[in-house]
Each structure stands twice: as structure tokens, then as C-alpha cells.
Amino acid sequence: MRRYYTTLILSVCAVFGLSAQSTWSVPQDQKEKLNTIEFTESMEKSGADVFAGKCKVCHGVPGQNNFNALLNPSPGDPAGDKFQKNTDGELFYKISEGRVTMPSFKTALSKDDIWNIIAYVRSFNPTYVQETSEKIETNIPEGTQLAMDISYNTDKDVVEVLLTGTLNDITNPVGGVNIKLMAQRYFGNLQIDEAKSTNKRGIATFSWNKELPGDSLGNIELMASFVDSDIYGPLSSEKKLVIGKPNNNPPLNKGRAMWNTVKKAPLWIIIGYTGAVLIVWIFIFYVLFSLKNIFALGKESISEDEKLI
């Protein structure tokens, strides 16, 4: 019972808490974020597709004010003033991170997808003039070929990602770059540890939960990539390492069970059923055999006084 009261109180608090928190503050650096290229019609179009799939359910069709008004905080019409007052960076941040009833889309959608949605939403604002940003400067010289390598450090029992850059045939480690490490799962990648920055030797070290299952031999497919892929590019590296817990779970339909197929039925039920049927039918056939004998006896000649009737 107590659990339900707690639930009730918590949900009430949550609802009040939300209404109070109607402004959504975005970190300053994120606010100023801009796309590097100008929105095109094709971007708007693919943005419209994504919008229809992911956003329409709550936000409705932009400009028609048919968003779901029952939600708190209100999703609002993306074509409306309140929406359009956001900077591009704010929109990007809000779509990426989400808040309360608004899901986070940073994994579900690519950065390009999010920019396309913004392009689409902006197309409903005739007064909007897009600003674009310059390419962000990095400490890595122009033209450097970056390479990542994942390895397992036996001594420290950690996974290391080595980032190197090659310029004019000279290869050097690259430090100060944020790298995230993911483990492949069937429907998506699971982040291992937190994002780590490469050190002076170009190495980022990751530790992981030793219970994480791998395949039957303990292999886990790992994937390293840049946190800021829009700065360093979409480079990623994959490697299979034996760092997982070997997983040898048998197929779920392996053992004998009442619900399994006939071949995997519990033995007692197979024996019981066939045994009972056999016994009864042996007797039935015995009776049928007697009938045959009765029939045969009828062919024997018999005197009248031998007859019972």
C-alpha cells in the first residue's frame, strides 16, 4: 500500500514540478551551435519525413496547431512563435537531449537527421534567416590522416584506444580528443564506461563491467568513435576482443517440457498415454478376436439338443 501512496505523491510532485519548470534552459555553448552548411530543399524534405515518423505524434503538423495539448509540458506547434524563437543550437540541443515527456533523439537520429528536422521546421518561418558556422578549428594540422586502434591491455585489465595521426608519412599519437567506446548488441550499441579523452600518448583507457556477456567464447565486438564526430569526422574502429563473459545459455526449447514438441514431451506423459492406450486396445482387439471365434464356432454343426435355445 505504501508503495502506491509514494507513487501517487511522486507523480503529483512530478506534475507540479514540470509546470514550474516551463522554461528549458540550454547551455550557452550549445545555444550558439550552428550548422556548417545552408539548409536546402532536399534537407527540408528528408526532415519532413523524419518529422512525420518521430515528431508528429505529439507536435502535430507544423502550422496547424494540432499538437497534443494534453501533454505537460505542452509540445507546442513547431511553426509557432514560441518554437521559432529558439536558436538553431537550442533546437538541436532540445531534440538531442529531450526532457520529461520529450524523448532524447541523439541515438535514434543522426546529427544530419536532426539538422534536417530543423531545416524543415524553419521552412514554416518566413522571417528566418539561417546563419552558418565556420569549420571548427582543432589542434590537429590540416590534412592529418587519423587512425584508431582498439586493444586489450592485459596488465591493467583495461581496453585501450590508441589514436594516431599521419601527416607526410610521419605518424604521431594524438592527445586531447574525446573518444567513446561501444559494445555491439543486436539492436544497438551499448556504451562502455564514459567517454574518455586521449592522453599524451594518444591512449584513452576504458574499464567495463566484467559481467557483460559476449558470445560463446566471450568475444565482444567493440567500436570506438569520436564524441565530436562533426569536428573530427565519422572515423570509427571496430575490433573483436575476448573480454566478455562467455555465454553458453542453451536454447530455450532444449529440455523436455509440457509445452515442447511431441519429441520433447515429458517421458512420463509419453509412457502413460501410450501405455494406457495400448492396454485398452489390446483388450478391445481380444474381444474382436473372440467375435471371430464366435463366428467360426457357428460353422460347426451342432445338434438341436446341444443348443441352449
Binding site: 473372440s290 464366435i294 463366428f295 464356432l297 460353422k299 451342432i302 443348443k307 441352449l308 435355445i309
Partner: peptide, 14 residues
């Protein structure tokens, strides 16, 4: 009636 002749053996079987 299976060739029934009221034979005692038939009754026995029956």
C-alpha cells in the same frame, strides 16, 4: 448375428 447357433461355447465366449 455372427453365425450364432446358441452353441454353449459361443455363450462362453460371449
Amino acid at each position: 448375428s455372427f453365425n450364432w447357433t446358441h452353441h454353449p461355447k459361443q455363450y462362453q465366449l460371449l
